[in-house]
């Protein structure tokens, strides 16, 4: 096998070469080119274009701290920890999958058995200095507990603040108000999830 098919960039047959005339080599040709360029008024086309834009006044500036671009729901910024809609408790069951899959090894967690003999997350941090926001943790989480949020502005005096479980967890009052946003990104529930559900075959 040769490399030709890899080097051939002409993937589309409708590509064509722009018709550029050869540069003139003799004096007369150059002179003709200068005269043609001088009187074709190309400079005025440029002037008109910028003047038109100025008159249209179609400004694209976003005055950042005051205005912000809407970011897509699938944007992968700082993580969020979700709560259960039914009981407002934390969704995370402490399975440790996110810690295991994290390719930059930045999730650290610890669990303990609580008084009801259930597994409880006692420590959970993500070192955002190392996180590459790949989204694997959100994808692997069986409970849709850890997701990515849209918060991309972070500042603090200490990097130890980035980032604790309490900061990621949906605040309880937000939850009570029913304002928790579900993550629509990679690994989230698709819109047709209900139709794709199958009954667990317990019959056999």
């Amino acid at each position: 096998m040769n490399n030709e098919q890899f080097n051939n960039r002409n993937v589309n047959d409708s590509y064509y070469l722009v018709d550029i005339k050869d540069y003139p080599t003799d004096g007369w040709g150059k002179f003709k080119r200068v005269v043609k360029r001088t009187f074709r008024g190309e400079l005025f086309v440029g002037l008109w274009v910028v003047l038109r834009e100025m008159i249209k006044f179609d400004i694209h500036t976003i005055q950042y701290p005051l205005e912000k671009m809407p970011i897509g729901p699938r944007y992968r910024a700082v993580h969020e920890m979700k709560r259960l809609w039914e009981s407002d408790t934390e969704r995370c069951i402490g399975c440790g999958l996110c810690e295991k899959i994290c390719i930059s090894d930045c999730i650290r967690m610890d669990t303990k058995i609580d008084e009801y003999s259930r597994k409880e997350v006692s420590q959970y941090t993500i070192n955002l200095g190392r996180c590459i926001f790949c989204g694997y943790c959100a994808e692997v989480c069986p409970e849709l507990a850890i997701t990515h949020g849209g918060e991309y502005e972070n500042a603090s005096e200490q990097r130890e603040h980035f980032i604790l479980y309490e900061d990621m967890l949906t605040p309880i009052d937000t939850m009570k108000a029913g304002k928790q946003l579900e993550f629509e990104g990679f690994g989230a529930i698709t819109p047709h999830e209900d139709e794709r559900m199958k009954k667990t075959p317990l019959a056999y």
Binding site: V50, E53, M54, F57, D58, I59, H60, T61, Q63
Partner: peptide, 11 residues
């Protein structure tokens, strides 16, 4: 220059 480049300039 800003208006011609669809910006706002100093604000």
């Amino acid at each position: 220059l800003a208006f011609m480049q669809r910006r706002l300039g100093p604000m």
